[in-house]
Amino acid sequence: MSVLEMREMVKEYRLREGLRTTRLRAVDNVSFELTPGRTIALVGQSGSGKSTIAKLLMQLERPTSGSILVDGEPMQYRGARAAAYRKAVQMVFQDPFGSLNPYHTIGHHLARPVTLHHPDFTREQVDERVLELLRRVRLDEDYVGRKPHELSGGQRQRVAIARALAPEPAILVADEPVSMLDVSIRLGVLNLLAALQREENLGVLYITHDLATARHFSDEIMVLYHGAVVEHGSADDVILNPQHEYTQLLAEASPAPERRLAELGH
């Protein structure tokens, strides 16, 4: 699998208010293409539909209309092709404190996806693969026996990344992977993601509301507003020369100390 395409995707939710029902269009006619080695950032406010798009990609929601194509073929929800799809598209969640089971060791978290996706592996092969995954995310091998509470937030998120890499995916969906982490380790985790992306030639969908990291981490940026893409272009174009007024609003709202300090200095 190499190219993942979302085409004219629409997702509506039914809202009930007493006896009346209304429809909320969470994703409104969104199309984009994820190719190996490229990163697309999806930015927008809370409630703009970013996470719904991630859920649609992860098969956690069914589209109202529109389609997801894998190398030009429609994605399947059942059968061998669906299994192959689920192996190829993996996700890193926002909260490293909530996404790891406190009861299990780090080794267990990594061994599960390995055994699920390689039922033919012997125990030695699985162990070897787990250690390799830890090395990939630059964690010491002795973390295998540790529990999540013994790790810092950044280390936990690196375990979550290793877990997503375990089935050898082609596409990685990263939903705010660093927003819960301390500022000084955010860059480290993003740099690691970028390095892994290069090593594995991954297509990455980076979901965030932080425009600054979106700009530096991605090739393209899509700005989402009320479920619709209002601006889509190369990262520097969208940030430095925003066309749509909503993108301008987002850029205005982002902390930019230079602006105020320039005022202070003169």
């Binding site: 630059r138 500022v183 000084s184 480290g188 740099n191 290069r198 600054a212 230079e258």
Partner: peptide, 30 residues
């Protein structure tokens, strides 16, 4: 170090390397 860990929106990339070496991942952990 704190200042450099924020990539600037409009300016330079700061400590952010998309294609360079990783540096010290644990350097700033607690």
């Amino acid at each position: 170090r704190l200042l450099s860990s924020f990539p600037s929106l409009t300016g330079e990339r700061g400590g952010f390397v998309r294609s360079g070496d990783l540096g010290d991942l644990d350097g700033t952990e607690l």
